[in-house]
């Protein structure tokens, strides 16, 4: 078995430290929001997990396209790792959002375009994982999931555009708000700093998880190859 590379080890330790620092910043450094109080603290991780979900989505789409062009299996591993991470982080985003929405919007869930889009993205990922499960030939599995990720990634631009295209109650934190965006607020510099620190932390966490997941899958592939040799 190939040992973990030292960079990966350092990255793992770094992301845990950054995570602790981000937590400390959210609870100790960032000021309380005037009307929403402690509930608003959810926002920092909500944004950060959504960011990771988006990163994963883009990484998966790009890796899928590169796979279709190059037919190199490592891109397939990267794509699958990105999809799995993105699936989990979008789910966390939705759950955190619900926790925030309950006191602020007075409901766990509304069929707002943004929320709906997030739910659809989750379903696309689940479908993609099911598709992968249904195919035995690794080469075909890689091709199909690359095509499906490409088709599915076309539903994400709507997520970005929806907030401007449709009338939405989801607040726009960066940019302009209208009166209909319930729960919007203006950020003070410490809040902004906390938000960007969280974004940075989660980007590092994303890279670390991605690396670990790809490595795990490479080991899986190695085991499969060994088994084939023995048989």
């Amino acid at each position: 078995m190939k040992p973990q590379s030292p960079t990966l080890k350092i990255l793992t330790i770094l992301s845990s430290l950054l995570f602790l620092a981000a937590l400390a910043m959210v609870f100790l450094y960032a000021p309380l929001e005037e009307t929403m109080n402690y509930v608003q603290k959810v926002f920092y991780f909500h944004i950060a997990t959504a960011w990771v979900g988006m990163l994963g989505f883009m990484a998966a789409a790009v890796a899928g396209v590169v796979y279709l062009v190059r037919h190199d299996r490592k891109w397939d591993l990267l794509e699958m790792a990105a999809i799995e991470i993105s699936l989990v982080f979008f789910l966390i985003t939705i759950i955190l959002g619900s926790i925030w929405a309950r006191p602020v919007w007075n409901t766990w869930w509304t069929w707002d375009p943004r929320l709906t889009t997030a739910a659809i993205v989750e379903l696309v990922y689940l479908a993609c994982l099911l598709l992968r499960q249904g195919i035995d030939d690794p080469e075909r599995r890689a091709r199909f999931s690359a095509v499906y990720t490409l088709v599915g990634s076309l539903s994400v631009p709507i997520a970005f555009l929806s907030i401007r295209l449709f009338r939405t109650i989801h607040p726009v934190v960066i940019g302009t708000n209208t009166a209909s965006n319930l729960g919007a607020f203006n950020m003070t510099p410490p809040m902004l700093a906390t938000m960007f620190f969280c974004l940075f932390t989660f980007s590092v966490v994303f890279a670390t998880l991605l690396w670990h997941r790809v490595r795990l899958e490479q080991l899986n592939v190695a085991i499969e190859e060994r088994q084939m040799e023995i048989l």
Partner: peptide, 10 residues
Amino acid sequence: PILLFPVAIP
């Protein structure tokens, strides 16, 4: 249907 419905939503 599992593959098609989420993608065809737009």
